[in-house]
Design a protein around this nucleic acid. Structure first.
Lengths: 195, 195, 195, 195
DNA sequence: TCCTAAGCGAGACGGTACGTCTTGTCTTCCA
DNA sequence: TGGAAGACAAGACGTACCGTCTCGCTTAGGA
């Protein structure tokens, strides 16, 4: 018990990783809902009692996975945003790129296959970002202004739809292309006024 | 065999109605997933065996409800669209109005409370409408054009987000106001540079 | 309402007969227990609601059938007994003969196929007969006498076993032969002392 | 894989025992047929799912109990038979004694209360014994001989009737008395002409 | 001849038990 | 000490029968 305190045995980490991976494989294979704790354990080669040693339920396992994602996303996106600060919706490109690096994960979490397991979570993260950006952007207390929150929801809803479409379609367009498209739609509107 | 063919006994209709209503109450009360067939039956004052006489599962009941919605929505929206044909996104106002008339139903189906039970279904219906509208709109095979489907997804994603926000917030704005806002965002973009 | 009291419509009689016959067919086919009211109705070409118009349950139908049997048996056996009064166990031959005339019925009720549906009933009827016969036979209050009831049970148990064996084996021996055998065993014992 | 193979956890044995005991209590209380798996579980203080972990049905539980009985009976009776070999129907006394030691069990299985749950099984065991004894006894192919199987059925049927009577009446006579009576009836016949 | 009460078939309904499946807890043994 | 194995209680599932009921149809027998 010297330094072992947080050096939580390699095995533990290994077990947890197995479980997370098993979960996302299964989500891709058959969607989240019908998955069974037993299936996860079997796929992860882990005893069912061991599962409950680490997580209290299937949802807990999912949440734990999302927490990592959240932390990563949040950091990355904020970085991206301040870095190339001038740009509108700075999170966009960073996120598309991250998604491409972890396609399987994202497809499981946001693809329409997999039942949109984490849409809520991602939506929330993004909402926070966009809201901040909008706020920073100058709040001209104009009279008939559109509620900021509403705009944020609008942008995030649209972004998620684009992301999902891109993932479902096989991420054929490169991140910068899809990013450009999204931003054009978001800043100029969806009506093809000009070419 | 005169007219009795589909005159399926009043009782049957009554039972089914009770079950549908019980379901949406429960969705509003505790979300879709944790609802039990038994709970539905109890709330509807219907025997559990009777439930299975009409529906094969909780999901089947939901689906059956959505089918009605789909038919109604589809008809209404298309009507609205051709009627005031010139307008962009003609479905928007019609849908906001319909939502306001059946707030409970919509809140259960699309509000974030209730777990977005029917987002997929509604999204699909709207996608069809928007896609048609975009197509009719004349898509000159311009070179770097944005894929039509992508635009449709963008618009619908944004619309759903606005709808959800509106429902969750208590539908405080009148339908025509929220409609106007959505259309402004959709046609002019979300960057409120100017008015 | 003059004479109609018990002149219960032909149809009624017909329906009941059908049900009884359906029941014994089914007993022969698959034993009593697993039979379903619905099966009986289907076999009898009778609506399930009609069934409950006449009987309160499968058991009620069975009982009603046994009552007829009981009445018939009782009468016949007592007649036989007094007629050729001198003979021991006068019921025996009469019963074997009756059984042979209604093999199907008896096989359903007493054969080991059919689960011995009515063994209890028959046993009771016979017990009464035998008890009477023994009583009439002179009750020498001998000291270590065997309780009369016990003897009756012994005789009836043995008789039923012989009857069942005979029915299950296809009633190959003629009634008078099997009767003779039973009586020999009953009066002389089962130990083949002599030929 | 040392000795653990069949050392099936104490708990398991305990659970099974509870279930068997619960079953026989219930049989004594209300007969076999109307008993519910749930009732058995409640009486045994066992979860219903646990029941199905061990047995596939109420009947399976019964059968499993009868198997033990069969093994025990068979062994005991055969021992008794060869031991005091000269006696006719050597099984008789052994069985009466065994019955007296386990009155409740026997009453549940063979008493008329309890619906004669196991009459068939017991009958079969005894038939085998008696058939063997008769065969060993030397059956000189005499001409008009009574089929051996028939004699066996006769004896066993009579024996079961006596046993049932004895159990139902409260086993007032001591085993050796009732045994003596049975044997007298079986060897000398039921017509108490003389003592 | 009508008409009217009965027998009847169809089938919705509430209930109860079934046997199955998944969950989360616990205990026991192994490396 | 972490993990595997697996017994166990709890409780939802979808199915099968049950017994009750309501609804129309038919089908005589009495007006």
């Amino acid at each position: 018990m010297k330094t072992t305190e947080h050096m939580i045995d390699r095995r533990v980490a290994r077990t947890r990783r197995s479980l997370h991976q098993a979960l996302i494989s299964l989500i891709l294979a058959k969607g989240y809902d019908p998955i069974t704790v037993e299936e996860i354990c079997e796929a992860a080669n882990v005893g069912r009692s061991t599962f409950y040693l680490h997580y209290t339920s299937k949802d807990d396992l999912k949440r734990s996975g999302l927490d990592s994602l959240r932390r990563h996303l949040d950091a990355t996106a904020r970085a991206a945003q301040s870095e190339r600060g001038s740009r509108r919706f700075g999170f966009s490109l960073a996120m598309f790129e991250h998604a491409r690096e972890h396609v399987d994960l994202y497809r499981a979490l946001a693809g329409s296959r997999g039942g949109a397991v984490a849409l809520g979570t991602i939506r929330q993260i993004l909402s926070d970002l966009v809201r901040d950006e909008l706020a920073a952007d100058g709040d001209r207390g104009s009279p008939d202004a559109i509620p900021r929150e509403l705009v944020a929801q609008y942008v995030v809803g649209a972004y998620m739809a684009v992301l999902t479409w891109w993932l479902d379609g096989g991420t054929k367009l490169p991140p910068d292309r899809i990013d450009a498209i999204f931003r054009r739609l978001a800043t100029e509107g969806a009506m093809a006024k000009d070419s």
